[in-house]
Design a protein around this nucleic acid. Structure first.
Lengths: 193, 193
DNA sequence: GACAACAAAGCAACTGCTTGCTTCGTGACG
DNA sequence: CGTCACGAAGCAAGCAGTTGCTTTGTTGTC
């Protein structure tokens, strides 16, 4: 009954704390000292675990995506009818984007440009998988006559509407996530059951 | 026939150049020296025209909004039928967001948090006017039975879909602005004429 | 000669990152 | 069993460059 995983716990701490700080203050608004302080390290110590600040940023994005993908993949692979599948995916995505402790998507959207081209390419691989999931659902909806287009633009408009919520959603104020999901689905698909 | 406006030309230069740099590199990714260089000044000279870097940022946002508002207001105040009015507004907004030399909306969205609370409040007044325009159109659409909801959430989803395009639109690659506008309107309102 | 519009020079703080060293748990080995 | 080597993890201190901004001086113009 000793420890199985406490290895790399500090590294994981750094990523988790950095994710929160990056979301709250942005990448440039967060110093490596802030991150070190927040986990109780000295200013140089994070660089034992990461070779650069941008490396921390990439880790935040990658680990967030890797953690979020399985749930979304399960939904899309499931055999719910198109509309229900879409509704479920939207709700799950809202949770990932806005849920407490889920900081990586805002960071991904805001600070994408801070990555070096190399790191960007690495993270892009995971983003592509995510985008493909949505495109699959959009295609299904279109095939079922619930959506007018299955183009990439349709998907981007749709994801934009939802992702943009990071800019206006305030927890416990106005609509909650269920209501937002419902309204979004009704808006995009019309009201037929 | 002397000069009515050449006064403050350098200040206007600073704002225009800063807008472009802020959009390209972000607020934190742009130094005051970059801005000075780009207009052919020395590093300290912009501070004759602005008391702080954040003041330049606020000026970019304010002047952009002030310049963009009349066109949108004219559209909303016009007496086009709801669907056409919406289509026109979407197209005009896309131009403001993505058109060449129109940099302030991306800056507004990306670097909003860099403003001090004071400046933020000042710019918010103009944003509110803009949001109200959209809300008016949403209400009209809803009243005409073209949209299922007239809530603020509906408007935010809708503006999100369009504004989010700053993250994926690449000029001369994929759809053009007309096509995007058309697809967006079809998606939100359905296809009936 | 007064004022607007800069230039020149630099300050003080901050930032990412490096370097040399310490601490501590673990396992090998005599 | 003792001790010795060793690597993981982190500390202490600081370097070198950058950044926003200030201060003081200069020039053209009305």
């Amino acid at each position: 009954m000793t420890n199985t995983a406490p290895v790399d716990n500090r590294r994981a701490d750094l990523v988790r704390v950095a994710a929160r700080l990056f979301r709250e203050r942005g990448f440039d608004g967060t110093t490596t000292r802030d991150i070190a302080d927040a986990v109780g390290m000295r200013s140089g110590s994070p660089f034992y675990h990461f070779k650069s600040k941008q490396d921390i940023l990439a880790a935040v994005m990658e680990e967030g995506l890797v953690a979020g993908l399985p749930a979304a993949e399960a939904i899309v692979a499931g055999d719910l009818p198109p509309r229900a599948k879409f509704q479920t995916l939207v709700r799950a995505h809202l949770e990932i984007v806005l849920g407490e402790g889920h900081d990586f998507i805002p960071v991904l959207l805001y600070d994408w440009r801070r990555l070096t081209p190399e790191l960007r390419e690495r993270v892009q691989v995971l983003r592509d998988r995510y985008d493909q999931l949505w495109q699959d659902v959009v295609n299904e909806l279109s095939a079922a006559g619930l959506l007018r287009s299955d183009s990439a633009v349709a998907r981007l408009l749709l994801m934009g509407a939802i992702n943009y919520s990071v800019l206006w959603y305030k927890p416990g104020q106005g609509s909650n996530l269920d209501q937002i999901a419902e309204e979004a689905v009704a808006m995009f698909l019309g009201s037929e059951a």
